[in-house]
Design a protein around this nucleic acid. Sequence first.
DNA 1: GCAGATTGTGGTAACGTTACCAACACGGCT
DNA 2: AGCCGTGTTGGTAACGTTACCACAATCTGC
Lengths: 352, 352
Amino acid sequence: MTVRNDAEPTQQRRMSAVPTIHDVAAHAGVSPMTVSRVLAGGTSVRPAKMERVLAAVAELGYRKNENARSLRPGQRTGLIGVIITNVSNPYYAELQLGVEEVLSAENIRLLVGNSGEDPARERQLVADFIGRHVDGLIVVPTGGDTSHLSERSLGSIPLVLASRELEGIEADTVVIDDVKGAFEGTSQLISEGHTRIAYLGNMVSVFTSKRRYDGFEKAHKDAGIEVVPELVRAGQRDPATAQDAMEELLQLPDPPTAVFSANNRNTIGVLRALRSNALSFAQPGETAPRSDIRVVGFDNFELSDMMPFLLNVIEHDARELGRQAGKLLVRRLRENNNDAPRKVQLPTHLRI
Amino acid sequence: MTVRNDAEPTQQRRMSAVPTIHDVAAHAGVSPMTVSRVLAGGTSVRPAKMERVLAAVAELGYRKNENARSLRPGQRTGLIGVIITNVSNPYYAELQLGVEEVLSAENIRLLVGNSGEDPARERQLVADFIGRHVDGLIVVPTGGDTSHLSERSLGSIPLVLASRELEGIEADTVVIDDVKGAFEGTSQLISEGHTRIAYLGNMVSVFTSKRRYDGFEKAHKDAGIEVVPELVRAGQRDPATAQDAMEELLQLPDPPTAVFSANNRNTIGVLRALRSNALSFAQPGETAPRSDIRVVGFDNFELSDMMPFLLNVIEHDARELGRQAGKLLVRRLRENNNDAPRKVQLPTHLRI
DNA sequence: GCAGATTGTGGTAACGTTACCAACACGGCT
DNA sequence: AGCCGTGTTGGTAACGTTACCACAATCTGC
């Protein structure tokens, strides 16, 4: 039965603070090492002592201090950093949920940060997460300067890029098949006879936007028609600016007959513009607004099926994207290997 | 000019791993203490050395190891745990964003976990976060057993409850004025002449659900009418089950003429049920479904204004709720005081 | 009943950091 | 010249944990 020489302060601390392995050891009358062994799996510990230790753990409500544990060489923190551009976009909230689903099964916790599409903020978050010694990073990159995500900067911390690739960065990546999705959506419009199709999307500097525009363009090319330059509006990041852009398009002398919208923020803006346009021309007594403008939008979103206009969405599974990103990271962590980066591309589906 | 006796392994580590304060010290030709002082604010350090240290920090890309730092007594981790019930509900995603907005300004990072309304999972997350020595907790509690959130269990870790209170737990709390909101929404329906008003919501064991039901009931009482028991459906947690419940109500011999829905998940289910009902009775050629059933729903949600039926929502600001929760926690951390728990109640607004 | 193998246990050190104390240099003062 | 304060610097220890080693306790086989 050992007695700590500094039993007094420990006694005091126990009142308010988290118990340490020393407290458990003293309580069970063993050394801290024995406690550590019991918690590590209980090999080479006499059953009687093991029981005493477990009782002490339960009684004190002891939990390993993960921060102290991870300080020892070769130990992991059990933390990963997740940087998304904006959780308030339900698409990224789903992504976060998918990541958590996979990683919490591995008993890994998430440090979450929103970059808000700001490269400086992303860089700051990465630096902070490295300082906290995360075991890995899952990032939806904003693009621009990527040096903070380079192998030189991250050292041995595995990185998974989600939703967007980055030129010059070799890392596991999960993306969706933007080009094909946009191609199919646009082709649908063309097959219905439309030739003046508007495009609304984010800045082309964003990976997915560029790819979706490429698919939009390819569909035109394959059909032997040309994209109409004055109907292309890129740079809208939220429904409000998208609505403005769409209202502008509707004012044109020769407005588009169909719209391809490259993400859910833009689609919602388009629908709002169409409704305000339809209402301003509505007959008295007519309650349901109508519009003859066909809309196809990338990304599904909640209630897309309840919209008052005909709308087709190119749907894909954001939660699955998060799950896949999580799985790629877990695989890196488990195998600890230097395999070539893996690329996963998830399918899209045009919902009619 | 000191030279580390173990320069060899450090040299090797620097290739792949994160540099330590010793590496910086060696690089700048000073002791680790001087580096620490420079980074702590640079008091009592000769400008020349300070410059050398800062240069070394920049060159090596050194970042404090926050885990090691927080191990010292009296030091904080700069981490707080955020437990929400489900990020895929945009309401809670907004809440998370509001929390982050306030805490990232304080240079505090978020450990985020989803409880999925499962008390056991919540308990597990709390235990884990305590093990990581978070400086504080912001929790949307699921209810049920609350012992893991008791002062005895948390010790000195400050807790802020968001969106829901807990009986028997004394903690800073931010809620919205559920009772008043539900009262106003229901009163609106009653003032329009409705007397057979359905109620759809989550289980009454959930704090907000109970309060919203209370407001619903109070509006009836004040108007001198009675709640119709067979029109009350509680326990739907997602749109699908809410839709089922609403379809059931529509099948009743004497169906409701109005619906009060206690949260956005239920409102969406109600609208889906109304639409499928309207479509099944639609005349050939009629494209816009109609419904005579009046709906008022708690929580605003994106596109609520674009629904094909008349709908009033009781809106409130989830991001502001998150911000307030963050501010309450920051205040506790800063003042380190034992003030009585503060309660903040945010207003709702019936959108007509 | 004893040597030797085997298992169970504790001490020590180290992970990266910083509070505290001691030591040092340097200038100004008697 | 010697003393003392001020300002700057480094050594040491501790935070809570666990790998490694050494030793104690127990169990085999003769």
